[in-house]
Amino acid sequence: MSGDPIYTEMIIEYSRNPSNFGKIENPQIHRHDSNPLCGDSIDLYVNVDGTKITDVKFDGKGCAICMACTSVLTEMIQNKTLDEVKNFQKDELLAELGLEHLIKTSPVRIKCALLSLKALKYGIYSYFTEKMNDVKAAGNLKEEAASLY
């Protein structure tokens, strides 16, 4: 079945060998999230130095789409500043894997694709509000996360 619009070589490869898979002990940002309907369940760990991301890892279980998207997300945000990451849009992530069409074609599977981004946005929100006491910096990250899908 060559040319499958979802299950490309790249996605299958990432699902078998996810990037940055593992755990960070006592990370500055930790967010667990899951899709109750399909059972994707991940933990995202991020360390920051000041405002720059120094390390990202994730673990958990999920479908190929979730594993691939989470892998790519962790690759994309490595060494970025929180400000850059804050504005990170879902299209950028989906485009990286050629999954933009999911927004239209699969309201169910889009959740798998965006779970990690949702976790990241919530995670940064909590970091700003709880650890840095900087509600302003958090902006409307929470609302953004909630309305991702």
């Binding site: 079945m1 499958d4 979802i6 299950y7 699902s15 309907l37 399909c38 059972g39 994707d40 279980k61 999920g62 479908c63 190929a64 789409i65 979730c66 699969s106 599977r109 798998c112």
Partner: peptide
């Protein structure tokens, strides 16, 4: 993952449950 299975076979019109 079962959802990947369901998505692939759904393209052939096959409705199974995964979860």
């Amino acid at each position: 993952h079962p959802h990947d299975v369901a998505t692939i076979i759904d393209k052939n019109g096959v409705a199974i449950r995964s979860g």
